[in-house]
Amino acid sequence: MGPDPELAFGEAESSRRLIIHAPNVHSGGGAVLLNAILRASAGSREVVLICDQRMKVDPEAQSFLITRRFAPTVFGRLAAEREIRNIATESDLVLSFGNLPPIYRLKAATALFLQNRYLVDAAMPLSGFRPGARIRLSAERVWLKRRLRNADRVIVQTQTMAALFEQRFGRKAEVAGFDSRQPESLLNDYAASKKLHDFTYISSGEPHKNHRTLIEAWSLLSEGGVTPSLSLTLSTSDNANLLALVEKTNSQKHTRIVNLGQLSASEVDSAYNNSGALIFPSLGESFGLPLVEAAERGMPILASELDYVRDLVVPAETFDPRSPRSIARAVCRFMKLPPDLNVSVTAGDFLKQVCEEKP
């Protein structure tokens, strides 16, 4: 039996050592959030980070950490699992950050942070992934199901993910302390100022990100004489087919779509600053970090009319993400009436819930 999670994560235990187990996090939104949590924890307690050797830890947090790195291989992952089994004690708090619970039952109270919707939502097919990714995700689904008992608590980022998790696994998940309250006032006429790009889609190129439908929507807009500019952030090494489609659409339909490539954190910030609005046609997300990032910057958001979006923001316009025409019509509506929303999300709130609040 593990420790009593209500005691282990109670407010009286806030000075306990925190072990963050993140051996499969090194890029994307997971790395951004992990660094934010590390910065928020800096100096407040002893923190041990078990991570992928490719993870770039924010220098602001590095000096406060004890870091143990492991190779991004099967053997490296197993070594990381043995490491946390060996070092975790009853007096520690463990945050299992990489979507999967520990293989072993730990002496420490353990919270699982689950942010990959593919592991929870059986309705999301894996057929659009490359064979290697399909095998990995299938294996992780099995891992999650069989080892979920090793997590005292499960934390997700939205009510939608919590409902999916309960439906799939028959137990409740906590929703992290992200602030999704609407501000008292909205900024007006944001899009009136000229930007380098009218719209941006900050996203990788996985199938559920829905780039093909977005590109088809831009083709429809051009056919109607509307040619807003759109920037994408696709890795040039992993998205050859999508980039070929962009080039073909620009050539044949005279659209204005540019690919900025895979961006660093500072380059992402610049992409937001150079864009008039975020467009987000994803078919499903466990969280949707760009929605929050855009809202924090006061950017208007056009997004799928799906629960995961409204868990976080109130978009300026919404659309059916499976319909290019619906997306195109939302763009046209937005170009006439630009509202805005600001959302505040802090890593400190998340860390407080993990380490101090009772389940």
Rank of each mutant, 00 (worst) to 15 (best):
K145H: 12
K172M: 08
D269C: 11
L232H: 01
L34Y: 07
S185V: 15
L278W: 02
N250H: 08
P321S: 06
T73R: 10
V345N: 04
Q252H: 14
N259E: 08
E46N: 11
S180A: 15
L34I: 13
H26G: 05
S282V: 06
H254R: 14
E296P: 08
D92C: 11
S231Q: 12
S15K: 07
R117E: 08
K56L: 14
K194Q: 13
S264N: 14
R45S: 03
R256L: 15
R117T: 04
L214W: 01
R181K: 10
V74D: 09
P324A: 13
S275T: 04
E293S: 06
L337I: 13
P338I: 10
F113Y: 12
E81P: 03
Q62K: 15
S180Y: 14
N239P: 02
F178Y: 13
R39A: 01
R141C: 04
R310K: 10
A240C: 08
D92Y: 00
L232C: 12
D152V: 05
G10F: 00
S235D: 15
L260D: 05
S91M: 12
L283D: 00
L95I: 14
A79T: 12
E206T: 13
L164V: 00
G298Q: 04
G43V: 03
V25Q: 03
S235Q: 11
L291Y: 01
S138M: 06
Q157V: 10
V343F: 11
G10S: 15
V258R: 14
E81Q: 15
T346H: 07
V246T: 06
A31G: 03
V154M: 01
L234W: 04
S344A: 09
G170F: 03
L260I: 06
D58R: 14
E296D: 06
L220C: 05
A80G: 12
P101G: 09
L278T: 02
F280L: 08
A347T: 08
A295N: 06
A40Y: 09
G225D: 02
G284D: 03
A176N: 01
V292M: 10
A8L: 08
R181I: 07
A133K: 05
L221H: 00
I50T: 07
S27H: 11
I20Q: 02
I37M: 15
V226F: 14
I155P: 00
S275A: 13
T110G: 11
A12T: 12
S326E: 05
L230H: 00
D52E: 11
F165R: 00
R322G: 07
L112S: 07
L112M: 09
S138D: 01
F199I: 07
A31I: 09
P359C: 07
P3T: 12
S15C: 09
S27K: 14
M1S: 14
E247F: 06
P23D: 06
P338K: 09
Y104K: 10
A162W: 00
A80H: 10
P359Y: 01
V292H: 01
T89W: 07
